[in-house]
Design a protein around this nucleic acid. Structure first.
Lengths: 158, 158
DNA sequence: TGGTAATTTGTATTATTATTCCAGAATATG
DNA sequence: CATATTCTGGAATAATAATACAAATTACCA
């Protein structure tokens, strides 16, 4: 029981201390630590550890340790479209190149994040509190245009 | 600029609502939503979104959305061995099938987690507070055995 | 508006990872 | 101790995902 668990611990330790991009690479690191195993076994280990591989901000793929939030799913089964709708949106107001979106408490951040991420041409930037988002609108855009654009993320904006 | 961002949003929506196990599968879902694209493009999308793939508790591989904690690395560069050592361990005491580990404040949870995960035969279960872990020890194990076993995780336990 | 730069995409190919089959070790268990 | 269970390597192979390259599309600016 010792050897395997120790190997798994070591894998976690390696992954959490340095960026590893492939199983080959990880095998090398493990070899350095005195382990001898094949890619097949490592693949099994990673599966058991639920280690994931994803791109980092540098555009490299790296292994990452799992955490519970990763696996959280929207239990309520909405359609994809409905899902996109559940943004906590409450109201939309416009005033001279500044738009204000009110959301349900706590929703402002994530909605603003989505808006930022979407990269709307019409929107210069956003600032979010807990239930309010300020949108700075591009000079040559009007309320209708902004509303229209946001409809992709907030279908019930009208 | 619209089409792609909308596709990315949809990918996130799909992944966060159902378990998807391969890019092929995800392509099908996207097709259902009216997108037409190739595996190559999807691969690039997933890279950009930093979507990860890992095993879930059912032994299936699923895509998971990234979260910041995933990418946290131990910046201080310890050797793997040193890393395994930094558990916040402070002291170990034993009293009739119950062991008590004191840790530095805040470390009890993660150490207990590691202990649980290791699956020591000698340990029936653990309960952790903020700086204290209670270990319930198997009837036929003594202090030395437990200490010995734990040494894998806490090299400086002696 | 025309033209160039930058981004996005598909195709084809390569790289990487998961799994299979199987037999032999290693470990647990009673 | 004997048997059952788990683990592993070896050797492919199947499955999956990443990318080089060129074409197409879109953004941007004088």
């Amino acid at each position: 029981m010792k050897s395997k668990n120790f190997r798994l611990e070591t894998i976690k330790a390696i992954i959490s201390s340095k960026e590893v991009g492939s199983q080959e690479e990880l095998l090398q690191e493990l070899k350095k630590e005195g382990f001898k195993l094949t890619q097949a076994t490592l693949s099994r280990d990673l599966k058991q550890l639920k280690v994931a591989k994803a791109a980092n901000s540098n555009g490299n793929y790296v292994y990452v340790l799992p955490n519970d939030t990763m696996y959280r799913r929207n239990t309520q089964h909405f359609s994809v479209n409905e899902l996109l709708t559940h943004t906590g949106f409450v109201s939309f107001n416009f005033s001279t190149k500044v738009a204000v979106i009110k959301t349900r408490p706590g929703y402002a951040g994530s909605l603003a994040y989505d808006i930022d991420n979407f990269g709307f041409d019409e929107i210069v930037g956003t600032v979010a509190g807990d239930d309010t988002i300020l949108l700075v609108v591009r000079e040559d855009c009007n309320e209708a245009q902004v509303k229209n654009a946001l409809m992709v993320l907030i279908p019930n904006i009208h």
